[in-house]
């Protein structure tokens, strides 16, 4: 009898726990359905219509928007630009951050004030991107400080019109992106490196390994989950790049569409005279598809030959994500 009551109570308690589990996660689920999932599905739907801002009615036109995009030189250019700007800022960003992280964690070098350096290098990441864009526009303007210094120091014979040259404009966007993100990458890399057990290095040292060998054979493989995290988050951000290229010149990727990214193009279609909702939605969906495929490929490629690591949350992400998709 008393056993029965105990059991019932326990059952009650379990049911109770379930109830609170649902109750406490309900706000997120509701918020996710209302503000993430529904807009995404709705955008997907809109990308198959010819809806504009002006017209009241619209028709479903199937894949026409997407077909138009692939015959649109602007879209192909935006696609190329986005990848080029992301890759050219990400590679040096990871390179410098890796170099700094190795130096900062090196026991022989004993670099002082590591906390101070990290704090300073992270600062650009916190500043408003719009402000940074307007600031660099002024710094690199024809009569701006950069030209003043360059001409006075004799580096350039006459002032350079940075924002009329496709190469310069693109380089400035790449530089700003690099400038904003290398500190963040550095901090994440260092966190990954300091979580590697020192016993590996001690054992390698006993075996007479050089610093470079230890980096290649211990640090890099054990850092793989962190590298995947950095690569994928940077890719997701980079494919959606908007603030800097939009604000730096006229908002249409001038000069000559050299800094027009996919997101800038989406906004251009949305804000054009007619307001092509359907076409803009199609650009949005293309960004979504391209980013998802690239992220998946990266995770697949880097997941192979994974060594046995200590339990690491990054690995968990990779696995969960891999399964869900």
């Amino acid at each position: 009898m008393s056993e029965n009551i105990k059991l019932r109570k326990k059952g009650n308690y379990e049911a109770n726990k379930k109830f609170y589990g649902y109750l406490f996660t309900a706000p997120f689920i509701i918020g996710f359905l209302l503000f993430s999932l529904y807009p995404l599905l709705y955008t997907f739907y809109l990308s198959f219509t010819d809806m504009t801002m002006m017209s009241k009615s619209y028709t479903i036109i199937g894949f026409d928007n997407f077909r138009n995009l692939f015959s649109d030189p602007f879209f192909l250019k935006a696609l190329r630009n986005t990848w080029r700007i992301w890759l050219l800022n990400f590679i040096p960003q990871l390179g410098i951050a890796m170099l700094l992280a190795v130096w900062f964690t090196n026991n022989r070098l004993k670099i002082k004030f590591v906390g101070f350096w990290r704090t300073i290098f992270y600062l650009p990441n916190l500043l408003m991107p719009v402000t940074i864009a307007v600031l660099f526009f002024n710094l690199f303007s024809f009569y701006g400080p950069v030209n003043q210094i360059a001409v006075r120091a004799g580096i350039a014979s006459s002032a350079i019109d940075f924002f009329r040259s496709t190469g310069w404009a693109r380089s400035i966007v790449i530089f700003i992106q690099w400038w904003m993100w290398f500190g963040s990458t550095l901090i994440v890399l260092m966190a990954g490196m300091t979580s590697i057990s020192s016993t590996y290095y001690e054992a390698a040292m006993v075996d007479g390994a050089t610093a470079f060998q230890m980096f290649r054979k211990i640090t890099l493989p054990l850092l793989k989950p962190v590298l995947v995290y950095i690569l994928v988050t940077s890719l997701v951000g980079g494919m959606q790049m908007f603030d800097i290229p939009y604000m730096l010149t006229d908002g249409r990727g001038s000069p000559n569409g050299s800094i027009m990214t996919m997101n800038v193009l989406m906004y251009m279609k949305f804000s054009s005279n007619k307001g092509h909702i359907g076409a803009a939605a199609a650009v949005g969906m293309m960004i979504f598809i391209i980013t998802s495929i690239a992220a998946l490929l990266i995770m697949k490629m880097l997941k192979e030959k994974e060594p046995d690591l200590e339990k690491n949350i990054k690995k968990k992400i990779v696995k969960t994500v891999g399964k869900e998709i």
């Binding site: 995404l40 809109l46 997701v236 959606q240 989406m266 949305f270 960004i287 994500v321």
Partner: peptide
């Protein structure tokens, strides 16, 4: 698992639907 997946999903791509 869904939350971890959503961390990696681009959020700005659905802005057109969100606006409408």
């Amino acid at each position: 698992g869904l939350v971890l997946l959503l961390v990696l999903v681009p959020t700005q791509v659905s802005i057109i639907g969100f606006y409408r």
